[in-house]
């Protein structure tokens, strides 16, 4: 029985050990007396130890208490919505270089706002459309046209 802290500690520890192992093959540069792996190994070693310490403290505390308390109480948090929001954002990021900033942003704002508040009324449909269009146009005009921040153009659309 390990708790959330224990898992966190183990994951951190294991990840750093894997990365530590990856630094072993690094080549040294003749110009620098210590190689590029020296400092990473230091940091990763410390992280592994800290992660393991967190795991052990968690274990000890649980044992002291005699069996852990039940797993995290059902918090009722809407994790599905969080996952979907991340997914929508992920798709947006993937589509940016393909569809271009203007098209992708319009779709993203529309999609996410409808996901967070499903458009059950006409007013919400309208709000979503206006918001998506306004955001896209305003940010594009301000940044690309006026402030010369060159936003991505779509490789599929050329727009």
């Amino acid at each position: 029985m390990i708790g959330r802290d224990g898992v966190t500690g183990l994951v951190a520890s294991a990840t750093s050990l894997v990365l530590f192992w990856l630094t072993l093959g690094l080549e040294r540069n003749p110009l620098v007396p210590i190689g590029p792996g020296f400092y990473p190994r230091l940091v990763l070693g410390v992280t592994a130890v800290l992660g393991f310490a967190l795991f052990v403290t968690d274990l000890l505390r649980r044992r002291a208490r005699g069996g852990g308390p039940p797993a995290a109480p059902a918090s009722g948090a809407n994790y599905l919505l969080v996952a979907l929001s991340f997914a929508v954002f992920g798709v947006y990021v993937m589509l940016l270089p393909l569809l271009g900033y203007r098209l992708a942003t319009f779709l993203f704002v529309l999609g996410l706002s409808f996901l967070l508040e499903p458009p059950r009324r006409l007013g919400l449909w309208l709000r979503g459309m206006v918001l998506a269009l306004a955001t896209t146009v305003a940010t594009y005009v301000i940044f690309d046209e006026y402030l010369a921040v060159l936003l991505p153009r779509g490789s599929w659309t050329g727009f």
Partner: peptide
């Protein structure tokens, strides 16, 4: 502003900021 309207806009600005 309702969160459903605010969050997409904030995230777009984050993307623009990061991109720039």
């Amino acid at each position: 502003v309702p969160k459903a309207a605010l969050f997409p806009v904030v995230l777009v600005l984050c993307v623009v900021g990061a991109y720039a």
